[in-house]
Design a protein around this nucleic acid. Structure first.
Lengths: 193, 193
DNA sequence: GTCTATAAATTGATAGAC
DNA sequence: GTCTATCAATTTATAGAC
């Protein structure tokens, strides 16, 4: 492993490194020195690109939230029966999760300890509310069981889907597509035969 | 709200406070001063009861892991068909989660950033492996679908169940029993009708 | 764009009095 | 069992050279 000439960082490539470190050690558990070490530059150099640690967090959260919001704009989320639209959203959230694994991992673990985190949580709640109303429509049309509160059902589905960021690694043993399949099967069909 | 005479802390009552603070702000995001403030004593006083912050974490994690392990010793987890035993474990994990909400919340969010965390993660993996083998038995006896890997199924079930620590509050709107019901219904039966 | 050096604040932990 | 005072280390962030 020889030393290699590296392209200088810009704000995007540095954010890539930061979200990976935040995902691995947790935002609060990761220091700017951890990020610097992972990037192969010094801590001071980071401040040339961003105003501080919280700005790096904000950029990661923004990526995650933009990707989730985009799902709700897709045709599959807005056309057809509510049951089919719900299934589309669940599958696409799973796919986006694997696509932006560190960003979503960070989003799913924030606690609201700062204004940046609080704003992201508010955005996320908006997403959840939209899906919950989709669940309600699916219940009304008879394609989803009505004995569970729509908000609870939404949280349980995404609890299952989101938890994959804790253990899924694209290591070839199971592909993102296969896992997205499994999530849809269990969330919509259950484990029982 | 007048100042009140308070029973002096012992190690258990202080751990109660600490796990609640850790659950709310995250272990790394919580300072010893946060714990002290929540307890209504000074930071220095905490060190009379425990050797340090990591010891408080260890005590909380121990509570959570002991409660989970105890479930596997229950008759319902060891007698009868695998499908029924699995359902018992899922339900009991949900109930224990609501019973020890802050402790389980902390356990579910650790990353392995210290020896204490690494040891707890090892214990938790052991629990997961036991349940995964239960899922496999249930597949073999034909009570659980066989098109999903037992390890993946286990992680998805507990991903759903464990995620409740993020949002469930015993505020009367929905009871622990109702939520445990909903988790079993969705995990085993799915959302679809 | 990255570095060295350093400031300023926070934080985990200890000493010793009451 | 709790306090005040303080230390030592870590950590976020800045100044200024190259």
């Amino acid at each position: 492993m020889r030393a290699e000439a590296r392209k200088p960082y810009d704000i995007e490539s540095l954010t890539n490194v930061a979200v990976r470190v935040f995902a691995e050690r947790g935002y609060d558990g990761a220091s700017m020195d951890d990020v610097a070490r992972a990037a192969g530059i010094t801590k001071a150099s980071i401040y040339h690109h961003v105003t501080g640690k919280e700005a790096l967090l904000g950029r990661g959260l923004r990526r995650a939230l933009d990707a989730l919001s985009a799902i709700l704009e897709e045709p599959g989320s807005n056309r057809g029966r509510a049951g089919a639209r719900l299934e589309h959203v669940v599958r696409r959230v799973a796919e986006v999760t694997f696509d932006l694994l560190p960003e979503l991992s960070v989003l799913f673990r924030i606690r609201g300890n700062s204004p940046t985190e609080l704003e992201a949580l508010a955005h996320r709640r908006r997403f959840d509310r939209t899906v919950a109303s989709l669940v309600r429509q699916a219940q009304n049309e008879g394609s989803v069981r009505s004995d569970i509160d729509p908000g609870v059902a939404t949280r349980l589905i995404f609890g299952m889907s989101n938890s994959t960021v804790e253990w899924f690694r694209a290591d070839g043993r199971s592909s993102p597509g296969e896992l997205a399949d499994a999530i849809c099967k269990v969330a919509l069909g259950g484990l029982k035969i």
